[in-house]
Amino acid sequence: MAEIVSLRQARKQKARADKERIAEQNRALHGRSKAEKARDVEAARKSQDFVEGHRRERPAGDGDA
Rank of each mutant, 00 (worst) to 15 (best):
L7S: 03
R21F: 00
E20T: 01
N26V: 06
G61P: 02
I22K: 10
V5C: 04
A28N: 11
H54A: 07
S33E: 05
E3A: 06
E3T: 10
H30T: 09
A28K: 14
V5A: 05
G31R: 02
H30I: 01
I22R: 14
E57D: 14
S6T: 09
K34Y: 01
V41K: 14
V51C: 02
E42N: 13
E36R: 07
F50C: 00
A38E: 13
F50R: 13
G53L: 04
D40Y: 05
R45E: 15
L7Q: 01
I4R: 11
G53T: 00
R45P: 06
A28D: 08
K14T: 01
R8N: 01
D40M: 15
E36C: 00
E57C: 08
R21V: 01
R58D: 12
L7I: 12
D64T: 10
E20Y: 00
L7C: 05
N26Y: 06
E42S: 14
Q48Y: 12
D40T: 02
R32A: 06
L29N: 00
D40H: 08
S33N: 13
R11V: 03
L7V: 12
G63D: 09
I22D: 09
N26L: 14
A60M: 12
R45H: 10
F50M: 12
R56N: 09
A17L: 06
E52K: 15
D49N: 15
Q48D: 10
A35D: 11
A17W: 01
L7E: 04
E24H: 06
A44Y: 01
R8M: 00
V51E: 14
E3R: 09
A44D: 13
D40A: 14
R16M: 10
E24T: 13
R16H: 06
I4L: 06
D62S: 15
A10L: 05
R16Y: 07
A10M: 02
L7M: 08
A65N: 04
A38L: 15
R21I: 07
L7P: 08
K34T: 12
A44S: 09
A23V: 03
Q25L: 15
A38N: 06
A35L: 11
Q9T: 02
R56L: 15
A35Y: 05
G53K: 06
G53R: 12
P59Y: 10
A60Q: 13
I4M: 05
D49C: 04
E52I: 02
R11N: 10
R8A: 05
I4N: 04
A17N: 03
G63L: 05
R45F: 04
A35W: 04
A23E: 11
F50T: 12
E24C: 05
A15T: 05
S47H: 08
Q48C: 06
V51G: 05
K12V: 04
K34H: 08
A44Q: 09
A35M: 01
L29F: 11
A65L: 08
G31E: 06
K19Q: 09
K37R: 15
A10I: 03
K19P: 00
